[in-house]
Nucleic acid binder design. Structure first.
Length: 302
DNA sequence: AAGACGAAAGTGGTTGA
DNA sequence: TCAACAACTTTCGTCTT
């Protein structure tokens, strides 16, 4: 069912944010739906060069397919294009070609690994509501891992989860290790270990998680207005300048900011409510809240 | 009765020797 | 590999609304 207008303010200006898997109201900022399926094109160019290459004719190259979407097959009937029998010499040649063709593609261990991994990746990504371009980025990263032989000794599923986590961090898509752990069925510490390993080996540049990216998510779960989100982001920006973010868990900081913002705007939520959707405890919210209040000199009457 | 607050002890992960 | 360490959680008693 397609969503046509915002249930809060009735506005029809809806922004579909496929990277984050959200539909957001353009007027009040309310996050109407998370985890939407991407109905846009199945690939997105990361830069002009790729756009040019991919925009050319033919099917887009898909990293999600074990053979990148390009298929050649040599059938088993020794006939030429008109159906006539082929000479024994040619037959032998064809046999050799078939053999090597198979070895070079589906039957190589790398391709077998990829076939399993990409299926798992597809499954986890869809549970997390990640759009196609993010999935492609994850698939590409996974290919790099395979190429550098980083999988050996590790569960394929754990590397898949780690790759997804890395891509989400890089793209600023708010998905916690907890969420990924839940849908992938791999323990958090296991994912974390694989994640750190591939980050080091591939020399990935992963920025710190920006707490503001969690604000829309938490606000939506708490049914808070766009005004609260605005306020919360404003608070976080100030906190960032004061150096209150570093070293702290991003979800905790974001949760505290949302909690404060809700109180300031008059849409109060209890610490427990905020804590639950953020996946932290009330104590953590209190600690962050205390720091924020002190450093930013916010007057909050509770 | 429920929520807010904070102290104290416990837990799991990181880091540096 | 081990110990120190910071962030966070759990638990609990007290205060406020």
């Amino acid at each position: 069912m397609a969503i046509k207008k915002c249930p809060i303010c009735g506005s029809k200006k809806l922004i579909r944010d496929y990277e984050r898997g959200e539909i957001v109201c353009g007027d009040c900022g309310f996050v109407i739906s998370e985890h939407i399926a991407d109905s846009g094109p199945e690939w997105r160019a990361f830069d002009a060069e790729q756009k040019k290459n991919r925009a050319r004719g033919g099917a887009p190259i898909k990293y999600m397919r074990p053979n990148k979407g390009l298929v050649t097959e040599i059938d088993q009937y020794n006939r030429d294009i008109r159906g006539a029998k082929i000479s024994p010499k040619k037959q032998a040649q064809l046999h050799r070609i078939r053999k090597w063709h198979k070895r070079a593609s589906i039957s190589s261990s790398m391709e077998r690994n990829l076939a399993i991994a990409l299926g798992e990746l597809q499954r986890v990504a869809s549970y997390l509501g990640l759009d196609e371009s993010t999935r492609e980025a994850a698939a590409l990263l996974y290919r790099k891992c395979v190429k550098q032989e980083l999988i050996r000794g590790r569960l394929i599923e754990s590397v898949v989860a780690a790759v997804i986590y890395a891509v989400c961090r890089i793209r600023g898509i708010p998905r916690t290790l907890d969420e990924i752990s839940r849908v992938s069925g791999i323990e958090k510490k296991e994912i974390g270990r694989s994640y750190r390993f591939i980050r080091r080996e591939l020399d990935l540049d992963v920025p710190l998680t920006d707490p503001t990216s969690y604000v829309p998510k938490f606000s939506a779960a708490l049914k808070l207005s766009g005004k609260v989100q605005e306020k919360a982001i404003q608070i976080l920006k100030k906190a960032l300048r004061k150096g209150l973010i570093s070293g702290r868990g991003p979800t905790g900081v974001a949760a505290a900011a949302v909690y404060i913002a809700a109180a300031l705007v008059g849409e109060r939520r209890t610490q427990k409510e905020v804590a639950d959707v953020a996946g932290v405890t009330e104590v953590t919210i209190r600690n962050r809240y205390r720091e924020l209040r002190k450093e930013l000199k916010l007057k909050v009457d509770l």
